[in-house]
Simulated assay, not measured.
Amino acid sequence: MSAACVEGGFSDPVMEAQVAFRALMDATARPGSLCDLPGSLAPPAPLPEGLGAVALTLCDPDTPVWLAPAYDTPEVRGWLAFHCACPLVTEPAESVFAFAPAGADCPPLTAFNSGTQEYPDRSTTLVLAVEALEGGAPLNLEGPGIRSRETLAAAGLPEGFVAQRAENRALFPRGSDLLLVAGLRGCALPRTTRVTAASTGTSTDEGAE
């Protein structure tokens, strides 16, 4: 095993994982809010630092992980195996957590596991690297954890993002959850969050209340 696989984890694994976990849980409870992730890690390229922090916090031997082709290198695989001991799968639908950059390397949300009616919690959480969490086209967010309405202006979201989210939310209680990460900042969009384009305020999302 190379040094790149062994090095680059949290400098204080227990404390920093706890800090990151609380930040991610707070972000999930308040969709659209931004959280800060610990930055004392250096995952092997090309895995972004923020995605590495999420992996070290949430992934373990019981959480199969899928890597987009852009991140699926021997070094990244070895780093995750050493620090998280998570099994790596070849199909998005087999994963509990999936890590991808926004763009052509990321399959549509329909490719991931949406859970079942009996076990909706067995769905995939997609951790998506975006350009920034501010400065993009504004989106309106509504739903549990949001008082009235929240606005998110992430830059670099996948094409057709609003339509994909509407299709995903219509599956409720099934559906994939989403974490957007830019640098060491994160934002959660649970399956219950309604996403509409702020310019029009309209959406095809009518399936979940």
Results as ranks from 00 to 15, higher is better:
Pro44Gln: 09
Asp72Ala: 06
Gly160Val: 07
Pro190Tyr: 10
Gly156Phe: 11
Leu24Val: 12
Ala20Gln: 13
Cys5Phe: 02
Pro13Phe: 06
Pro92Gly: 10
Val14Ala: 15
Thr110Met: 11
Gly9Val: 02
Ala111His: 05
Leu58Glu: 15
Leu80Cys: 09
Glu167Pro: 13
Gly8Gln: 05
Ser40Phe: 02
Ser114Asn: 15
Gly103Ala: 11
Ala23Ser: 15
Pro74Met: 01
Thr125Gly: 01
Asp62Gln: 12
Gly52Arg: 08
Glu75Lys: 13
Leu58Pro: 14
Pro48Phe: 08
Pro31Ala: 09
Arg169Gln: 12
Ala93Ile: 02
Gly207Asp: 14
Ala3Asp: 15
Gln164Met: 11
Ala27Leu: 14
Asn113Ile: 05
Pro120Ala: 14
Ala98Asn: 05
Arg122Lys: 09
Gly207Asn: 15
His83Glu: 04
Pro64Leu: 00
Ala53Thr: 00
Phe82Asp: 01
Ala155His: 03
Val162Thr: 08
Ala68Leu: 03
Leu58Thr: 13
Leu128Gln: 02
Ala85Gln: 09
Gly143Asp: 07
Val96Trp: 13
Thr125Met: 02
Gly207His: 10
Pro43Cys: 08
Asp105Phe: 01
Ala188Cys: 15
Val65Thr: 14
Leu128Tyr: 04
Ala154Ile: 01
Gly9Thr: 05
Thr124Trp: 01
Gly145Phe: 07
Asp60Phe: 04
Glu7Lys: 00
Glu131Lys: 02
Gly183Leu: 01
Asp26Cys: 04
Thr204Gly: 14
His83Asn: 01
Cys84Gln: 11
Asp26Trp: 11
Gly50Cys: 09
Asn113Trp: 02
Leu80Val: 07
Ala70Glu: 02
Glu134Arg: 07
Ala198Pro: 04
Gly143Cys: 01
Val162Asp: 05
Ala163Cys: 06
Val162Arg: 12
Pro13His: 03
Glu75Trp: 03
Thr124Val: 04
Gly32Pro: 00
Val65Phe: 10
Arg191Asp: 12
Gly9Asp: 08
Ala17Ile: 08
Val89Phe: 07
Asp105Gly: 12
Ala129Thr: 09
Leu41Arg: 02
Phe21Tyr: 12
Ala170Ser: 11
Val162Tyr: 10
Pro108Ile: 05
Leu109Lys: 06
Phe161Asn: 10
Ala3Asn: 13
Asp177Ile: 07
Ala68Gln: 02
Leu171Ser: 10
Leu67Thr: 06
Ile146Arg: 07
Pro87Val: 04
Val96Tyr: 09
Ala102Ser: 12
Ala81Tyr: 06
Glu150Asp: 05
Ala111Val: 07
Val6Leu: 14
Ala68Thr: 03
Pro69Val: 01
Pro158Ser: 04
Thr73Cys: 12
Thr151Cys: 12
Thr151Leu: 11
Val130Trp: 05
Gly9His: 01
Pro43His: 03
Ser199Met: 09
Val65Pro: 13
Ala68Pro: 05
Ala154Gly: 10
Pro13Arg: 06
Pro64Ser: 05
Glu91Ser: 11
Gly201Arg: 03
Val89His: 13
Val127Thr: 09
Glu134Val: 07
Ala53Tyr: 08
Arg77Glu: 11
Pro108Asn: 03
Asp121Asn: 10
Gly143Gln: 01
Gly32Asn: 02
Arg185Pro: 06
Ala153Ile: 00
Leu184Ser: 11
Thr116Arg: 11
Ser95Asp: 02
Pro31Ile: 06
Leu41Gln: 11
Pro48Ser: 04
Trp66Cys: 03
Gly52Ser: 07
Glu91Thr: 06
Ala23Leu: 10
Pro138Tyr: 00
Phe97Pro: 12
Gly103Asn: 07
Phe112Leu: 02
Leu189Glu: 14
